[in-house]
C-alpha cells in the first residue's frame, strides 16, 4: 500500500491539492476527470452525497478507463440527478427500485459475463435507507454470492429524500420527522445501531471500507483499491446532509471531519473479513463538538443540557475508539 498522505493544516479547513505532486492529486483535481455526475443537477447546496458520489464514480471511471455501468437505488442521488428529461450521468446508469440496486447490479454483471465483457466494471450505489434498510436483503445476497460488484452506500443517516425520516442509520437522540423530541423523549431511540460495514465483513467479502467526505483523498484511494479487487466489495461513505442535519451548507466537510475526530464514525478497511487498516484520530474531540452545530441535536443543549443523552453518545464514541483502536501511535 502506498503511504497515506496526511494534511496537518490548522486554522483552515482547506486541503489543497496544490500541496501535492501532480500524480498524488485527486482525480477531481485533474482536467480530464470523467465528470460522471456532471453539473446542473438538483442537489441541495452543501450536499455531502453529491460530493461523495462525484468522487466515487469518477475514481471508479478512472480505474476502469471509463468502462463502468452504474446502478442506483431510489433516493436523493437518483432524484436530484435524473429529473426528466435531463440526466447528470455521463456513465451508463440505471435506476430500478428502492430496495433492489444490489440485485440489479448482479444482473448487469451476469449479463456482461455472459457476453464476455469482463472489462466492464459494475458499480452500485444508494443511500443508507436503500442500502441498510430496504435493500439489505439484496445486499446480503450479493455479498454472499460474492458477485463482482462494488457497492457504495452514501450514509446521511436518515431518509432525506422523503423529508428526513429515521433510518436504521439515524444516530441515537437525533431529531427526524419520525423521531421528534417531544416531552421527555430525546429524539431517536438509543437502539443497538447497525454497522453495515461490520455486517458486510461478516460475509467475508474481499474488501470493505468506511470513508468520509472529510477525507476525499482517502475516499478516492479506497474506491481505486476496491476497483482492483474481484468479487463483492462494499464502501460505506459518511455524507453529511445540511437539510436533514440542520447545518449550514458550508459545514458539510467540517461535520464529516468532526464525526471522525470524535470517534463517532470510524474509518477503516477490511480484507476478507478482517480489519486491515484504521485511520487514526489525530486530535480526539468530545462528541459535543460534533453534536452542537447540528439542529437535529439542538434539544440536547436547549433549554438545558441533556447530560445523560450526551454521555450515552460519548460512550458510543468511546467504544468505537476502543474497538477499532482509533487512537494510534502515529495518530
Amino acid at each position: 500500500m502506498s503511504q497515506r498522505i496526511k494534511f496537518y493544516q490548522t486554522g483552515t479547513l482547506t486541503v489543497g491539492n496544490r500541496l501535492l505532486d501532480a500524480k498524488d492529486r485527486t482525480v477531481q483535481a485533474t482536467l480530464d476527470r470523467g465528470n460522471s455526475l456532471t453539473s446542473g443537477h438538483r442537489a441541495c447546496q452543501g450536499c455531502g452525497e453529491a460530493l461523495g458520489a462525484r468522487y466515487v464514480v469518477d475514481a471508479a471511471m478512472r480505474w476502469a478507463d471509463n468502462r463502468v455501468v452504474a446502478v442506483n437505488a431510489t433516493g436523493c442521488l437518483e432524484v436530484f440527478s435524473t429529473p426528466y428529461p435531463e440526466s447528470s450521468w455521463q456513465v451508463p446508469w440505471i435506476h430500478s427500485l428502492f430496495g433492489n440496486a444490489p440485485a440489479v447490479a448482479t444482473g448487469v454483471r451476469a449479463a456482461l459475463r455472459a457476453k464476455g465483457r469482463t472489462d466492464v466494471k459494475v458499480l452500485a450505489q444508494g443511500g443508507d435507507g436503500g442500502t441498510v434498510d430496504i435493500g439489505f436483503g439484496c445486499l446480503s445476497g450479493m455479498f454472499e454470492r460474492n458477485d463482482d460488484v462494488l457497492y457504495v452506500c452514501y450514509d446521511n443517516e436518515a431518509y432525506m429524500n422523503t423529508g428526513v425520516q429515521r433510518s436504521s442509520r439515524t444516530p441515537p437522540a437525533a431529531r427526524t420527522a419520525t423521531t421528534p423530541p417531544v416531552g421527555n423523549s430525546s429524539g431517536n431511540v438509543f437502539g443497538q445501531g447497525k454497522n453495515a460495514a461490520l455486517i458486510a465483513m461478516a460475509h467475508n467479502i474481499p474488501y470493505v471500507a468506511t470513508a468520509s467526505v472529510a477525507d476525499l483523498h482517502d475516499l478516492e484511494e479506497k474506491v481505486t483499491k476496491a476497483m482492483g479487487i474481484d468479487g463483492a466489495r462494499y464502501i460505506h461513505v459518511h455524507v453529511p446532509c445540511p437539510l436533514g442535519w440542520g447545518s449550514p451548507p458550508h459545514d458539510t466537510i467540517r461535520l464529516a471531519r468532526l464525526a471522525v475526530e470524535t470517534g463517532l464514525f470510524a474509518l477503516f478497511e477490511a480484507e476478507d473479513g478482517e480489519v486491515s487498516d484504521v485511520t487514526h484520530i489525530r486530535r480526539r474531540l468530545p462528541v459535543e463538538e460534533y453534536l452542537k452545530p447540528q439542529r437535529r441535536f439542538a434539544h440536547l443543549f436547549r433549554p438545558q443540557t441533556d447530560a445523560d443523552a450526551i454521555g450515552q453518545i460519548q460512550s458510543i464514541a468511546d467504544r468505537n475508539i476502543e474497538k477499532f483502536g482509533l487512537i494510534g501511535r502515529n495518530g
Partner: peptide, 15 residues
C-alpha cells in the same frame, strides 16, 4: 424480489 431484479439488470445490460 431479487430474482426479477437480477433479470432486470441483466436485460438492461442486453442479455
Amino acid at each position: 424480489f431479487a430474482a426479477l431484479s437480477v433479470a432486470i439488470g441483466a436485460s438492461a445490460a442486453g442479455a
